[in-house]
Deep mutational scan, measured.
Amino acid sequence: NQASVVANQLIPINTALTLVMMRSEVVTPVGIPAEDIPRLVSMQVNRAVPLGTTLMPDMVRGYA
Protein backbone atom coordinates (compact mmCIF):
# COMPACT_ATOMS: atom_id res chain seq x y z
CA ASN A 1 0.00 0.00 0.00
CA GLN A 2 1.38 3.32 -1.08
CA ALA A 3 1.03 6.45 1.04
CA SER A 4 -0.57 9.50 -0.54
CA VAL A 5 -0.38 13.20 0.28
CA VAL A 6 -3.26 14.35 2.51
CA ALA A 7 -4.10 17.92 3.60
CA ASN A 8 -3.11 18.50 7.23
CA GLN A 9 -5.32 21.62 7.38
CA LEU A 10 -7.71 23.61 5.20
CA ILE A 11 -5.61 24.87 2.28
CA PRO A 12 -7.25 27.94 0.66
CA ILE A 13 -7.34 28.29 -3.13
CA ASN A 14 -4.09 29.66 -4.68
CA THR A 15 -2.10 28.90 -1.51
CA ALA A 16 1.53 27.85 -1.98
CA LEU A 17 2.04 24.50 -0.25
CA THR A 18 4.41 24.12 2.70
CA LEU A 19 5.53 20.97 4.53
CA VAL A 20 3.29 21.71 7.53
CA MET A 21 0.17 21.64 5.31
CA MET A 22 0.73 18.04 4.18
CA ARG A 23 1.02 14.57 5.68
CA SER A 24 1.33 11.09 4.23
CA GLU A 25 -1.38 8.51 4.73
CA VAL A 26 -2.48 5.28 3.07
CA VAL A 27 -5.85 6.20 1.56
CA THR A 28 -8.26 5.11 -1.14
CA PRO A 29 -8.33 6.33 -3.82
CA VAL A 30 -4.59 6.84 -4.12
CA GLY A 31 -3.56 10.45 -4.74
CA ILE A 32 -0.21 12.16 -5.25
CA PRO A 33 2.49 9.79 -3.87
CA ALA A 34 3.93 10.81 -0.48
CA GLU A 35 7.48 10.74 -1.87
CA ASP A 36 6.53 13.77 -4.02
CA ILE A 37 5.96 15.98 -0.93
CA PRO A 38 9.34 17.77 -1.35
CA ARG A 39 8.44 18.53 -4.98
CA LEU A 40 5.05 19.97 -3.96
CA VAL A 41 6.52 22.60 -1.63
CA SER A 42 5.83 26.10 -3.04
CA MET A 43 3.42 24.77 -5.72
CA GLN A 44 -0.07 26.30 -5.55
CA VAL A 45 -3.40 24.54 -5.17
CA ASN A 46 -6.00 25.54 -7.74
CA ARG A 47 -8.97 24.95 -5.41
CA ALA A 48 -9.69 24.98 -1.69
CA VAL A 49 -8.56 21.67 -0.16
CA PRO A 50 -10.39 20.71 3.07
CA LEU A 51 -8.61 19.09 6.02
CA GLY A 52 -8.12 15.37 5.45
CA THR A 53 -8.57 15.57 1.68
CA THR A 54 -6.25 13.49 -0.51
CA LEU A 55 -4.31 15.71 -2.92
CA MET A 56 -4.88 14.65 -6.52
CA PRO A 57 -2.59 15.68 -9.42
CA ASP A 58 -5.24 18.01 -10.89
CA MET A 59 -5.48 19.99 -7.62
CA VAL A 60 -1.88 21.26 -7.77
CA ARG A 61 -0.87 23.77 -10.44
CA GLY A 62 2.16 22.57 -12.40
CA TYR A 63 2.26 19.09 -10.86
CA ALA A 64 0.75 16.88 -13.57
Rank of each mutant, 00 (worst) to 15 (best):
E35G: 06
L10P: 14
L19Q: 05
P50S: 09
T28Q: 06
N46Q: 09
N1H: 06
L19W: 13
V30L: 14
E35I: 09
N14Y: 09
P33Q: 08
A64I: 13
P57F: 10
N8H: 13
Y63K: 03
I13K: 13
V6W: 02
Q44A: 11
A48P: 06
S4Q: 02
E35Y: 10
D58I: 06
A34V: 15
L51C: 03
Q2I: 08
E25L: 04
E25M: 06
V26P: 15
G62E: 11
V41Q: 08
N46Y: 14
N46G: 10
N8E: 13
L55T: 01
L51T: 12
P50C: 14
G31A: 04
P38H: 13
P57L: 05
D36C: 08
Q9C: 05
R61C: 15
V5Y: 02
V30Y: 11
M43Q: 08
Y63M: 04
T28P: 02
V30G: 09
L17S: 00
N46F: 08
T15P: 00
R39M: 10
N46S: 11
L40Q: 00
L17G: 01
N46T: 12
L40N: 00
N14A: 08
A48N: 09
T53F: 14
G62T: 04
L19D: 03
M43T: 04
S42A: 15
V41F: 07
R47H: 10
Q2H: 08
G52T: 03
A64D: 05
V60T: 02
T54A: 06
T28Y: 11
S24F: 10
V45Q: 01
N8I: 07
I11K: 00
S42D: 09
A16I: 09
M56Q: 10
S42Q: 10
P50E: 14
R39F: 15
P50W: 13
M56Y: 07
R39W: 09
A64M: 13
T54V: 11
V49Y: 02
G52D: 07
V49M: 06
N14G: 12
P12D: 14
G31N: 01
M21E: 02
P50M: 13
P57G: 11
Y63G: 04
P33R: 08
A7D: 01
R39H: 07
L17C: 02
P50G: 12
A3Q: 06
R61G: 13
P29K: 06
A64G: 11
N8T: 15
V6C: 04
E25A: 10
V60P: 01
T18N: 05
A3W: 08
V20G: 09
I32F: 03
G31K: 01
L55G: 01
R47D: 06
V26G: 07
V26H: 09
I13F: 12
Q44S: 11
G31T: 01
V20F: 14
L10N: 13
Q9D: 11
N14D: 14
Y63V: 03
M43S: 05
R61L: 09
R23N: 05
A7H: 02
M56L: 10
I13Q: 15
S42Y: 12
G52C: 06
M43F: 12
R61M: 12
E35C: 07
I11F: 01
V60D: 01
A16T: 15
V6S: 03
I37G: 06
S42L: 14
L19T: 07
P50I: 10
T15C: 05
V41Y: 07
Y63Q: 04
